[in-house]
Amino acid sequence: MKILVLISHVPDTTARIAFTNDNTAYDASGVQFIVNPYDEWYALVRGLELKEAQGGTVTTITVGGAVTEPTIRKALAIGADDAVRVDTEPKDGHDVAAQVAAFAKDKGYDLILAGKETIDHNGSQVGPMVAELLDLPFLSLATKLDVADGKATAERDVRGDVEVVECPLPVVVSCAKGMAEQRIPNMRGIMAARTKPLQVIPAAATEALSTTVKFELPPPKQAVKMIPAEEAGKLIELLHSEAKVI
């Protein structure tokens, strides 16, 4: 089975969020970057489990500049066989998808796995866009994934219910919590990752369909109103009469 896993390079979950250039760009100075948790914990690890059980290869693909390479090496340390980096600063979610699709279109992947969203852009766009650009079916927000007899079976949470869906390969899957357990790379993995192939390819020509014109930070919260524990019931009264939310 040939598996492609999309790996995004994102600021650590505790990173300071600030902007530069008149609030038009994220200020990455001093920020630690990580593999997007959905890509790492669910998509990559499930891809590796399927490969270990059924044979095959797991390749990762990242759209980004050379700064993303430590993140890509982390994915290799966790166990991916090889990696591809499309050398461009993506213009928007569609650009990422277009770059991935341009690379994947004639490679015969059986499974293309993406995290359900990135923790920086939160668009949930790339997986379905890759599916559309490759004219493939898409299993969205899968919490479980299995492959047998040329078919993928997934579970998804839909409005609180659990739906079991099935689809012939090849397919694009967006991976959510429940699919796998996080793997911490060991020393051997980290050593091996240094010499695993990381192919850098030039970007396909694309046009931006959208741009972010400005970022803003939410206004600071007003001071919290404290209610003594003995009079806890007052909270309910205030939520009703003052905040008017119940």
Binding site: G93, S124, Q125, V126, P128, F138, L141, D157, L209, S210
Partner: peptide, 22 residues
């Protein structure tokens, strides 16, 4: 929502339209 997150980006990619997600 679950359906919109799967369909809106597909439609945007198919019709080469810019998309605001969420």
């Amino acid at each position: 929502d679950d359906t919109g997150k799967a369909v809106a980006p597909r439609v945007a990619a198919k019709l080469q339209a810019g998309e605001v997600a969420g």
